[in-house]
Design a protein around this nucleic acid. Sequence first.
DNA 1: ATCCAGGAAAACG
DNA 2: CGTTTTCATGGA
Length: 282
Amino acid sequence: MALLQLQKDQPFSLDLTLSCGQVFRWDKNPDGWWYGVVGNHVIKIRQDGAALSYEGVPERFIRHYFSLDTDLNAITASFDCDPYIHSAIVQCRGLRLVRQPAWECLVSYICATNSNIPMIRRRIATIAQKFGTAIEFEGKHFYTFPDPSSLGDSCPATLSECKLGYRSPYVLGTACDIPDEKKWQQTMVSLPYEQARRELMKLKGVGPKAADCIILFAFQKYEAFPVDVWIRRIMREHYLKTLSEDSALTGWEYDAIRRFARQHFGEHCGYAQEYLYAAREG
DNA sequence: ATCCAGGAAAACG
DNA sequence: CGTTTTCATGGA
């Protein structure tokens, strides 16, 4: 068991960070410990005030994954520009965007379309269980997320057990389009936002929303502003009151919303998006 | 039954 | 070209 002491000027909420909907593979036990699989590691972690207790990975891994070295106060200050976002910032103090493994993030958001969070979590868990590698930890089995070739070579019958519905061929096709996970990841991080977005949208099952989520959560390009039905509702009610009430989100509207957000919240508008999403009330 | 959920592809004018 | 329809799944 290792201990990490957070600094006073380093706000962090493990609970908000792991339960705000950006990740799908973390679970909290009633005793307060979070368990998750990141890459090839099972991580066990809990927070008591400014103290983080953890095991499974070295400290530098924790710092990197949870973005503990980014100046969160500076980031939230950069988009703290109106009363509504201000209240979200106060309400979600300590929420950080984590650095998700890119391939898993990509598949996660292909599986997320027209679906809800519990369903997404179940799909990702089943994919890992069927195609990943088992890791034993505290007598229980955890599963790594399978690499592209493991999924690409999978038999369709087993994949259908993951209940992806019409998303199955998208996941399969994308697995075949990305033979080299590491090379793909390196290429993507080097591209500027708009270019990375266009590249991602070439993949089957990746539209504007999924592309923006992947860019934000896996590549830390904080100018991405994913617009889902919740964000559209919030933006319509508090920022773009001229938007029509019907929930259809056209391509033109999506661009109008993300461009407004980029201008209004600034270069970290993606971070602002996650605060808006986390502070949403049903 | 009907509607909805971190949408996107395919079909249609 | 922009717009509408369809898609599979399960919970409310």
